[in-house]
């Protein structure tokens, strides 16, 4: 089934208490701020959030943490100059933290999306992050066994989608989006524009529609200055195609 275009509130209503939610972005680049805002409004709690960082400033992921909806964060780098919301919760013992090396974080989600049961990674060998994990020497090199990270839901931000759900991204805002899209039972992509089927160059599609379930158009996302009008220089989209308003509903 191809992706369904929804308003943000309806799209995130699939998230249940206790879910594991994969949240795209590296800092604010690629952060689906409007989907997170809708998730806060939706009210699901006791969440495990998997994301590279643990929120920046007071918006996006930081706002979700501040709202008290998150039980555990799985990330590579929670400590930043503007991560005061997470810092406060962590020091107060109100949130669990699992620190995962960034490449293992990406690969564990890739494994989940690709049906891999577990994999041996050289990253982290001999460090505290490998303690208690099974290891094996293969061809003279030591590796640590790492398990997949699956999401119930992934919230990602891409640049342009077609109505099938095929996605293209913009610059380094791509980061975890394509990997997370494969690793969750339901993937919700926030995009700046939704174009007609056939308007994306199939050779330029980064995330094929099979990995995308729900599309939410946000024409001027808070975390991006991406041009929303078709620009000659950002040209994976062929002809200028129709742009769906944020509240556009499409039958399944």
């Amino acid at each position: 089934m191809t992706a369904v275009i929804m308003a943000a509130a309806e799209a995130v209503s699939v998230v249940k208490d206790g879910d594991t939610v994969l949240v795209g972005g590296f800092g604010m680049a690629g952060m689906p701020v409007e989907l997170i805002d809708a998730l806060i409004e939706h009210g699901a709690g006791d969440l495990t959030i998997v994301s590279n960082n643990a929120g920046n400033g007071d918006t996006g992921l930081a706002a979700l943490l501040a709202a008290g909806r998150v039980r555990k964060v799985v990330c590579s780098f929670p400590r930043q100059s503007d991560s005061w919301v997470f810092d406060g919760l962590y020091r107060a013992g109100k949130i669990e933290l699992e620190v995962v090396p960034q490449g293992n974080l990406a690969e564990r989600m890739r494994a989940a999306g690709a049906g891999i049961g577990a994999f041996f990674s050289p990253t982290g060998v001999g460090t505290p992050l490998a303690e208690g994990k099974e290891s094996r020497v293969i061809d003279g090199r030591e590796y640590v066994l790492e398990y997949p990270i699956r999401g119930d839901v992934a919230l990602i931000r891409a640049h342009v989608a077609d109505r099938m759900g095929n996605l293209v991204y913009r610059k380094t805002a791509r980061n975890f989006g394509p990997v997370m899209a494969t690793a969750a039972a339901v993937t919700i992509a926030q995009v700046s524009r939704i174009v007609d089927i056939g308007a994306l160059d199939p050779e330029a599609v980064v995330t094929p529609a099979i990995f995308v379930n729900r599309l939410v158009a946000v024409s001027a996302p808070a975390a991006s200055s991406a041009p929303t009008a078709p620009a000659a220089s950002s040209a994976p989209t062929a002809p200028a195609a129709s742009s769906a308003p944020a509240d556009r509903q499409e039958p399944a």
């Binding site: 810092d87 620190v99 090396p101 293992n104």
Partner: peptide, 21 residues
């Protein structure tokens, strides 16, 4: 990546992957 200080929030980023890669 860490001084092991008890009050520090652990954060590793991509350092371990870069180191061995």
């Amino acid at each position: 990546w860490s001084t092991g200080a008890p009050d520090a929030i652990p954060a590793v980023g991509g350092a371990m992957d870069l180191a061995i890669g």
